[in-house]
Write a protein that binds this DNA or RNA. Structure first.
Lengths: 206, 206
DNA sequence: TCAATATAATACAATAGTGTATTTTTAACT
DNA sequence: AGTTAAAAATACACTATTGTATTATATTGA
């Protein structure tokens, strides 16, 4: 019984295999997602793996799908029409990306790296990115930007967030520091319309 | 003689090994930098490799150093003091990052991925990033920003550029399209001070 | 309790990759 | 041309990893 995994179940579910693969991907990159290493991590031999997954590619495919299904960087942005609502949504968004609730930037990053060398994964990531940028654009339209400005600001905002995570900057600062800095980033990235909406909102409550 | 590499020299220099490793890293990621694969690419056996490099780690270390020495994203930014000079430098910078002269974003990206899982490489990349951001900050100071704004804008500018490359956006658009879009990105990212400096500069020439 | 089923362990054959030691070839220099 | 030194080829022993097939062991449920 020595050297066995913590879990109380003696049989390993597909979800456990998948979660282990996810952690391996995050910690060791693509090279870490090896069937025998996952088994070692789980404290079993590879025997059971092939009951749940056809082969290595199978768990990889499911891991990418898992990312699509569970790791949305943005909160729901639907039903935003006024500039004030848009500004509020932006605050909510910043809360999410800073606190990383229901979202793992390291998972996002790891998948993104994989996408760079795997054409299939790249297509999936591109689709997800396009969707996120589309949703952000709507936010900037609600803020009062014209089509072109909204399109550009959505991209700049998103690229910046991706770069921020890619640099691992968020791991070097405390949450409170990041939350303090967030409004400054917002003013830089979201422009005049945003600053006006915030000021208006502040006057209302003052 | 069939199936041999193009090069006219029959012996392979350390530089050729290094260049092959670089291309392998860019195309296949970390997993591509394997001694036997490099040899296969060069059309030789691994025999000669160990004359030039102590082992696999050795070529990896030199590859990272090669990145530090040759792949600076930013042009020289020294000696900028006025807002107009700063604005000009920003244009030069954008030319460089868009046209990718003397700089390979895919190399940068590949090294950055490696840094995420290798603590040693991460330290090097962090040092380089800090230097680049410091130089950008000086540019924003010259533009007339105060300390805090300059620091934030430098980071936003840099994060955005990293994210832009990470998304592979530049591979989907023509150079001329990117050059047309560049001023818009600049106005968003560099703020009021930049727009003023550009306007002033335009009036001077009009 | 016993049978059925799911999962785990074990054993096997194969590939890819590492590093070292030895021999052969090639280029360069007198 | 003959010597020397560098690089390439070859051979070896070793580790990591994959996938399949077979056997063993738990869990579940009649």
């Amino acid at each position: 019984m020595l050297g066995r995994r913590m879990a109380n179940t003696t049989k390993i579910t597909p979800e456990e295999w998948l979660e282990t693969a996810k952690q391996a991907l995050i910690q060791d990159g693509v090279a870490g997602v090896k069937v025998d290493r996952l088994a070692k991590t789980l404290g079993v031999t590879r025997g059971g793996f092939y009951h749940h997954f056809k082969n290595q590619q199978d768990i990889i495919d499911r891991l990418v799908q898992h990312w699509v299904d569970t790791n949305d960087m943005l909160p729901p942005l639907e039903g935003v029409s006024t500039a004030t609502e848009a500004a509020d949504k932006l605050h909510e968004l910043v809360q999410r990306v800073v606190l990383e609730e229901d979202f793992s930037s390291s998972f996002d990053l790891a998948i993104r790296e994989w996408a760079r060398i795997d054409e299939q994964i790249k297509k999936t990531v591109d689709r997800v990115d396009a969707g996120r940028i589309r949703r952000l654009k709507k936010l900037f339209l609600a803020l009062g930007c014209d089509e072109e400005e909204a399109a550009f600001r959505a991209r700049v905002f998103y690229f910046h967030q991706i770069g921020y995570y890619a640099m691992g900057y968020h791991t070097r600062q405390t949450r409170s520091k990041r939350l303090t800095a967030a409004p400054i980033y917002l003013h830089i990235l979201c422009g005049q319309r945003y600053s006006e909406a915030v000021e208006k909102s502040n006057r209302k409550w003052a």
